[in-house]
Nucleic acid binder design. Sequence first.
DNA 1: GAAGTGGATATACC
DNA 2: ACTGGTATATCCACTTC
Length: 822
Amino acid sequence: MKIDFIPIDYDHFEFNKRDIIKVIGRTDKGKRLCLFDEIDSFFWVLLDKKLSKEKIKSAIKKIEKVRIKEEGKDIKAIKIIPVEKNFLGKPVTALKIFTKNNAEMKVLANKVESENFTVRGNDLNIITRYIIEKDLIPSYWYEVEGDILTEDSLDFGGIQKSLDVEFCLKLKKTKVYDQFEKSFNPKAVAFDIECDDISLGEGEILMISLASSEGFKKVLTWKKPSHGRKPEYVEILKDEKEMLEKFSEYVSKISPDFLVGYYSDHFDFPYIKTRAEKLKAKINLGIDGSGLKLTKGKNVAGKIKGIVHIDLLNFIDTAYSQYMQSETLSLNEVAKEFLGEEKVKFEFKHSSKMEDSEWEKYYEYNLHDSVLTIKLFEKMWPDLMEFSRVIQEPIFEVSRNGMSKNVESYILHNLKQFNEVPEKKPEHDELSERRNRERYEGAFVFEPIPGLYENIAMFDFTSSYGSVIVTYNLSKATLLEKPEKDAYSIETLGKKVYFSKKPGFLPEILKEIISKRKQFKKELKEKPDAIKKARSNAFKLLANSYYGYQGFFGARYYCVEAAAASAAFARKAIQEVIEKITKEKHKVIYSDTDSIAFLRGKSSHEEIKKLLEKINKGLPGIMELELEGFFKRGIWVTKRTGEIGAKKKYALRGEDGKLKIRGFETVRRDWCKLARDTQNRVIRLVLDEGNEKKALEYVKEVIKKLKERKIDKKEILIRTQLKKPLSEYKAISPHVIAARKMIEQEIPIAHGSLIEYYIAETLEKKKLVREKVKLPEEKGEYNLEYYLTKQILPSVENILQVFNVETKNLVEGKKQTTLGDF
DNA sequence: GAAGTGGATATACC
DNA sequence: ACTGGTATATCCACTTC
């Protein structure tokens, strides 16, 4: 039979010692379908290209003789074929060595490697290999053809009987549809739990909420107010165990493609798993009746067979966080930014101390978290789907992997067109060697002259490093061992490095990424839609991560020379542009990595655009400069120490009215709100009027209020992230003290928490800031001197200094407010 | 015990 | 450890006088 199908989840099992891949997805009629497909297992042995036929034959013979006999197993190659392949761009004769199955392949490959053969391809994930071999890419629509596996079919040992899907198909043929022909709205359900104790499985789960894409909403609990009244969406069960089983029952009934949580890999999922095991509650959500699983390894992930568990937090981190305004990735802030909606406000207390009247609010709070999560999922679905399509890995993977892994997956899935054998993952020794390498020189940053400037234009390179890599063909495979005349070369790492001019596969792959990004960006502009936007963004992220990937120690295609040369060529390129702009009589005032700000002077927009065109004509390869924008005014300040201009710190008012603030305390979350807001106001006043008087008046007002102790406590709270376990801190800074206090008071601190505190007046004179730390709830007066001299003044003095306003006199009389005032 | 300096730490920029 | 390097700034830890 033929049917339209979209692959979502991949799994595999062994039957009769053969690997069978199960692909779970939906048909266009919304039915769940499982495809069964057999896959061959093989790895590569690389031989020298110049080897004679006899030598190749003898290598084959030698490998044929390799056998591993253990525990009744007899592992050996079942077929060996010599194939002409490329490895790192060079032709090689490769032996394709087939084994019975994946497990045997791994064992045999290791044994063959130990006999001094160069082995490759044995470290690919079996699902990745399947997708490459069979071209059945996740999240694309296919017309699939195959035989229905009837109840009594024994083709795969009758396993289809135990699968909770509409039907199973033994796959014969597939035909892919055009990516934009069909949309797909997945079934998804979000979940969230509430507990008294946040340490995994320590306490009981009080309630679980569910919210589905189809409008299903439910709170399951076994806790209730004494009067027994409850909202209609709440279902009260006998005990925790029954609640867990009910959860499983509801999810099964919904039969979703995705089970979505927020931070659920590290909390909700393992918590439910632990409690279910302890209480012997049956949670058989897997399509084969299996339970909740946690993946092994350092990064735990919750897994259910046939239902893709997604922890949205992970995906937000890799796909969005760099463009976001939110200062944390908490559900509350993220929902605010993406949905314009916040969490239900609720003050936690232990369930044993919960008043009757408070339960309803608690239920509502719990439900709303799931509602926000499902809404976020729907908002992010186009990106999840496009990431998966572009990178060609299942959504479970792309939603969890960082960009380096995603870049690598993209590369692996695109090797076929270059007939390339995949490079191996670095092993232990190699890893530590790479990690300990010396750092190479990175980007160029222009030292600005502090001041207020008018009529500024800014250019920047499109995909700067990416276009450098493509233009100069920088990669592991194109790096030349010896100097060559006709090659790209540059001085870096204390030597001259050379790269071949013959296009290498890695830069070629990147070239395609950049051109696709351009194409989709253009199409998006012409006819916007969410899918195109997502696709364009996926390519953009890939292009931007390619440089970092080549310098990342964990990369298969790691190459410091390529990474260092990328930075060196980029420095050269930007400096040449700075020279050109200067020659055109425009004063360059700032530049960082790939952008240049300069004074437009009396030149019109058109003239600046012409200048841009002129510069672009002279740029090599695919390098391209674009107009970032025109700005009315901008301010650059000195460093706090010394007279020289501070880098990475400036503020601009665009001609379009938009404010662009970089590096200032305003944008730093570890400064108190008062200092940030004051600075922000000062920047605005200065940029809008070009006049410091109002700004100065404003600062005086703030200081007056501060001295009169009229400032609200929440304005002076300082938030600092705890980035490692408390015991590992060598320097005991204020936020460490605050965290210690929290632990004393049994306030839970999650990994990576933002610690809030303020600096208070103390009875005795204390020298260190940390000795004056108090938690927000702790009674006390804010330390006037600290907030004046360490928060407010530092935040505005460099800005006012530009106008020769001395700020020292602003704090006069600060001493009157020490001990005597209390 | 004050002053100076380097280290540890957090955060931002691109 | 989960892309890279560049940069500012604070506060602690330690040395020196």
